[in-house]
Design a binder for these strands. Structure first.
Lengths: 252, 252
DNA sequence: GCTTGACCTTGACGTAACGTCAACGTCTCT
DNA sequence: AGAGACGTTGACGTTACGTCAAGGTCAAGC
């Protein structure tokens, strides 16, 4: 038998056969005077054996090990491990399909909906379109939504919950617009202090308390640092002043 | 943000980030005077987006396509395809686990048990241990068992079924031994004709008929060629003479 | 004897998604 | 000023083969 015949018999390509020779999974047969590999029936059996293990999902290295020490014990062990691995893969695929199903069920597959649906709606309502500050806020929440652990995420969600009140939403548009406006201003600009005061005044009470509390946590400062690094100095100052006001209010 | 910070934030390695830059999945950010990449929050969002798609199982090429034309329609299509693909993978894994379960349930995991259990037992009974002819027979059946289509396999199984009769088994040992013995003999050796006659005589009637019938089929000659190429000339002649006898018997 | 075509040979590069050096520059801290 | 942490580009390693490239072998037909 020549290599093409063997390959066809077992159902692989000639390249595969040569590859197995190269890896030592299959012994090199005798050669014809012309230099062709000359296979016997036995080689077909050996090749079939390798393929059976490969199709079960063993790597070629594992197959070589198994065939090398030919231990019944070892094989059982490997196959048991393999079964566990396959079970994990099944779970992983099931999870992926579940997430896919959620995505496909949603009407809008817009990629910008990286943030949870309710959160997205909220942001849309609070911030006017085309606002740089709104975009930053959306990015922040988007990242927290996927990057933070579950506990932190829920904490944040709870914190901004009060913003869903309809009367807050209307004021949000105006404040966001003013935040954008002072981006290029000097931190000493009188509008800075004024805006900070308004933010503090209009922030729902529960939310203000939650914010002050969260400032104690180290993880919060991490996210905060991320945010302030993207804001103009005047905008940072607005937030600082607002936080100071909130803290004072909390102490009293 | 520098690259390590970004990577930690999103939960990937710096190598992954650079890889995505290389593939054009993520825009290269501004550089610091020192040559470091300087990321903004927006980059983290973009990277997260890529990772989400990647974790769903899309290839990076597909992700680039999806992000490029940013079509809602296209994404839905891709994800639907992906879901179908994942379903296939699930089926494939389930099938592998099923085969694994069968293997693990069997007491002996001996790799030489490549042939179906009942078939293996049969061979063991018919042929004495250490026989070259027996080994060849075993290899042949092993290959047919895995390589032939279901119809052909069942046909062969049905054909050799009569061999399971206990009185045939005893004679099988003797005949196999004599087949081994004439391996080096000349085709004109008187033992050749004698052995052929005995084979023909002792072959169960139904099996003889089935063999003659199967000789008409083209696929049979293929397997037959494989077998005769491994036998000594004298052994081939035994089989030829036997077949001739069987054919004559069938005609009469 | 010569070509043709099917098959074979070895060697080497390509794939997907990064991991892992190597060799070297930058930043921060002491 | 040196150390250590981090960054830069470049290039090779991984898996299980696919796919040329450049050429040798063999049987068949002219």
């Amino acid at each position: 038998m020549r290599i093409g015949e063997l390959a066809a018999l077992v159902g692989v390509t000639t390249r595969t056969v040569r590859h197995y020779h190269h890896l030592g999974l299959l012994p090199e047969p005798e050669r014809t005077p012309g230099g062709y590999r000359d296979y016997r029936l036995r080689d077909a059996v050996l090749l079939t054996r390798v393929r059976r293990l490969a199709e079960l999902g063993l790597s070629l290295d594992e197959i070589r090990d198994v065939l090398a020490d030919d231990q019944d014990r070892d094989l059982r062990e490997v196959l048991t491990d393999l079964d566990a691995d396959l079970a994990h893969q099944q779970d992983a695929i099931a999870a992926r399909r579940a997430r896919l199903a959620v995505l496909l069920a949603e009407a809008d597959l817009n990629l910008d909906t990286t943030v949870a649906p309710d959160l997205g709606d909220l942001l849309h309502d609070i911030h006017p379109a085309g606002s740089a500050f709104a975009a930053l806020d959306r990015d922040m929440l988007s990242l927290i939504d996927t990057g933070a652990d579950t506990a932190a995420r829920e904490q944040i969600m709870a914190m901004i919950q009060p913003l869903t009140a309809s009367d807050v939403r209307g004021r949000g548009h105006a404040l966001t617009a003013r935040m954008d406006a002072i981006a290029g201003a000097d931190p000493s600009d009188p509008r800075v202090a004024a805006l900070a005061a308004e933010f503090a005044a209009h922030l729902p009470t529960e939310m203000a308390a939650a914010m002050v509390a969260s400032l104690e946590q180290s993880e919060t400062s991490h996210w905060l640092g991320l945010m302030t690094s993207e804001l103009a100095p005047a905008q940072v100052k607005v937030l600082c002043l607002m936080v100071t006001t909130l803290k004072e209010r909390a102490c009293s």
